[in-house]
Design a protein around this nucleic acid. Structure first.
Length: 154
DNA sequence: CGCCTTTGACCGGCGC
DNA sequence: GCGCCGGTCAAAGGCG
């Protein structure tokens, strides 16, 4: 089914504050990703950009999490993700990976974490919403969706 | 060659 | 104030 990838668009789950959240998220990250990357080259200014983001606007983007049973962490959902961090959390012995959608103006973040108990279970958390169409379609995607359980939190 | 992953350091929040 | 904890940055290297 071609509609499957739409399930990953958090917009569908957040009819109430869709446009507001989208614009705020976009605005928040405009300085970082949307703007010139050259400004980030300035070492000390990098912190300022982040500080400004957190200072003015706190958390405004919605989060959506779901579980899947998969062997691999990176579930290819049709979007392009750039990994920007990996950290170990206390409760889980497996590290948590941080990804970001590589598209100007579309700053959707995603965390992938697998449970220490069940290696086969992978928790994926989306943060924000995509402002662009999906780049490619997936075949194995329906397989994932079959096992998927959605937690619409926040 | 361009994009992405890796990886240690850093930062801010929070609890003690 | 200090240290833990979770999230992010950014330089350097890898891989197609």
């Amino acid at each position: 089914m071609e509609n499957y990838p739409l399930l990953f668009n958090p917009q569908l789950y957040n009819n109430n504050t869709t446009s507001e959240l989208g614009q705020e998220v976009k605005d928040n990250y405009h300085n970082i990703d949307g703007g010139n990357k050259d400004s980030l080259v300035l070492e000390s200014n990098g912190c300022e950009a982040r500080k400004k983001m957190k200072g003015e606007n706190k958390e405004r983007r919605a989060r959506y999490a779901f579980q899947t049973r998969s062997q691999v962490d990176v579930l290819d959902d049709g979007y392009r993700w750039r990994k920007y961090g990996q950290k170990a959390v206390k409760n889980n012995k497996f590290p948590r990976s941080y990804y970001r959608c590589t598209y100007q103006g579309c700053n959707v973040k995603k965390q992938v974490q697998r449970l220490s108990k069940d290696e086969g279970v992978v928790v994926t958390t989306y943060e924000g919403m995509h402002t662009h169409p999906i780049e490619k379609s997936n075949d194995n995607f329906e397989h994932i969706l079959n096992q998927m359980q959605i937690y619409t939190r926040f």
